[in-house]
Computed example of a mutant assay.
Amino acid sequence: MFSTSSLTGSKPEQYAQLTAQARALVHGERDRIANAANLAALVYHALPHLNWVGFYFHDGRELVVGPFQGLPACVRIPLDKGVCGAAASQRVTQRIEDVDAFPGHIACDAASRSELVVPLVQGDALVGVFDLDSPLLARFDADDQAGLEAIAAVFVEALG
């Protein structure tokens, strides 16, 4: 039903197609775990050069790992630590070309070299973050950021 190998066109066009697939996946489903699991799998298998894609949810104090694709991950991340904590506390997408140069980076997987983290905010409430890691330096560009922010928005909209 969902074929990620059929993405065509420019990178923005491919992200538009992927966002449409994401909308179809979450249509009529409000459970955040189910939607996070499906969206993590969709993105992980659709985009090249990723070694981790997943969600961290805010429990009121810190970020707690949710559904993901990739190697086992850090379970809890304080809001004042790492790229995920920065995205969550600042509520601004973090696109990091070299995670080793990011102050306070948390190395859950030593193979990760670049990272993109989109905050998930519903109204005024922090829901969590959508986190992508790559073994390549500077893997993520502005098109990736815009496309992944759109997919994160699909997730938040599905929460109702």
Rank of each mutant, 00 (worst) to 15 (best):
I33H: 09
N35T: 15
N38L: 15
H45C: 02
L50Y: 06
H49V: 00
L42G: 00
V43H: 02
L39V: 10
H58A: 15
A46Y: 00
H49M: 05
H45Y: 04
A36E: 11
L42I: 02
A41H: 10
F57L: 08
R61Q: 13
Y56E: 09
I33K: 09
N35F: 15
Y56D: 12
R32C: 08
L47R: 01
P48V: 02
A41W: 12
H58S: 12
F57W: 07
P48W: 00
H58G: 12
G60F: 11
H58W: 15
F57A: 06
A36Q: 13
A40Y: 01
A41G: 05
R61V: 00
H49C: 03
N35W: 14
V53N: 08
N51R: 06
L50P: 03
A36Y: 14
A37M: 11
L42V: 02
G54S: 03
G54N: 01
G60L: 08
P48I: 05
G60R: 12
L39G: 07
A37H: 14
L47Y: 01
L42E: 04
A41Y: 10
R61L: 07
D59Q: 07
L39T: 11
A34L: 13
N35P: 08
A37T: 13
A40I: 05
A41C: 06
H49D: 14
N38E: 15
V43L: 00
W52Y: 04
L47V: 01
W52M: 03
R32S: 12
A41S: 12
H45I: 00
G60W: 12
A37F: 14
A46K: 00
W52S: 07
H58N: 15
V53L: 04
F57Q: 05
F57E: 05
R61K: 14
L47I: 03
L47T: 03
I33A: 05
A34N: 13
A46F: 00
A34E: 14
N51L: 05
A40G: 07
F57N: 08
L50A: 02
W52C: 01
N51M: 03
A41D: 10
I33Q: 10
N35C: 15
N38D: 15
R32G: 07
R32E: 13
F55N: 09
L39Y: 14
L42R: 02
G54V: 01
L39A: 09
H58D: 15
A46Q: 00
H58I: 13
W52G: 02
I33E: 08
Y56S: 11
A46C: 01
A40N: 04
G54L: 00
H58R: 00
A40H: 01
H49I: 00
I33S: 04
D59I: 07
D59W: 09
H49S: 11
R32A: 10
